[in-house]
């Protein structure tokens, strides 16, 4: 990696100020940024560590689960409160990367990066989460804007993510055999915001809502309701692990499994 300055602010205002430098980079768990730096694909002036901003922790109310931005995946995966309120979310967190990744990686980092094969964006979108930042609240539907692209302004910091508690939900992932990122991941939820289906890994533009499935499931929340609904291959990713047609097919299969898992 190239040389850079390193800063570890202890309040959000200082962090935002440091990130006013357009070539500064925020770091939380570093599970994406560090490999990028090691490969010299990015040359930040300053790396701003967000983990001492007091943004870790989980709060559960009768209707919401709010997870602080720097809460690690392992914390979410092992939280009894999350497991009770939104078991699908704990399950998702327990299958991100490997054990080492889960001890370092954070929900805010995952959502800010919006890797098209990351797991958390599907949960945020399907559950209709609200992304809270240092300056505003953003609905998930407005937040994800294509792969590695979000509604965040330069220097804007995610502080927490608020998930409405659904009636039922499930996440099923078909991992890429090499990277183990989601080749197709489907999060289905039935809750206060209706039936929502979000697909990660498969689409060229990152996570997306599968409206055809949502319509069918709104009428009849069962795997059988999806029979005969074939996801079109247009807009799907293609690489050495799978063609667009294969990914489209996997979306169908994994969505049915997710609905079945949601019960």
């Amino acid at each position: 990696m190239y040389d850079f300055a390193f800063s570890k602010p202890t309040n959000v205002a200082d962090a935002v100020k440091l990130l006013g430098d357009p070539d500064a980079k925020p770091i939380s768990g570093g599970q994406t940024l560090i490999p990028v730096l090691k490969q010299r694909l990015n040359k930040p002036t300053t790396v701003v560590d967000l983990t001492k901003l007091g943004l870790s922790g989980i709060t559960v109310t009768a209707t919401t689960v709010t997870i602080g931005a720097t809460t690690t995946h392992v914390t979410v995966a092992t939280s009894a409160d999350v497991a009770k309120a939104i078991p699908a979310l704990a399950h998702l967190a327990s299958h991100i990367g490997d054990r080492a990744v889960r001890y370092r990686g954070t929900i805010g980092g995952s959502l800010a990066n919006n890797d098209p094969t990351a797991d958390y964006p599907s949960a945020a979108l399907a559950l209709g989460a609200t992304i809270k930042t240092d300056r505003r609240s953003i609905a998930a539907d407005d937040y994800f804007q294509g792969m590695f692209t979000t509604a965040l302004e330069p220097g804007e910091i995610i502080t927490a993510v608020e998930f409405p508690i659904p009636e039922k939900a499930a996440y099923v992932k078909f991992p890429n055999p090499a990277s183990r990122y989601a080749m197709v991941g489907v999060f289905v939820a039935k809750g206060p915001k209706g039936v929502r289906v979000a697909v990660t890994g498969a689409g060229q533009n990152g996570v997306f809502r599968h409206t055809a499935f949502e319509t069918a499931l709104a009428a009849n929340f069962s795997a059988g309701a999806l029979a005969g609904l074939a996801t079109p291959a247009d807009g799907m990713n293609a690489d050495i692990h799978g063609s667009a047609a294969y990914r489209a097919h996997l979306v169908d299969v994994i969505a049915k499994r997710a609905v079945a898992a949601a019960g």
């Binding site: 055999p177 090499a178 990277s179």
Partner: peptide, 23 residues
């Protein structure tokens, strides 16, 4: 079942990291 070193027709190595080479 898993491993495959893949070059594209122009000779670029597509499976040049563990992201794409399935150990």
């Amino acid at each position: 079942l898993l491993e495959n070193a893949v070059y594209d027709e122009n000779g670029q190595l597509l499976s040049g990291s563990f992201m794409d080479y399935t150990m």
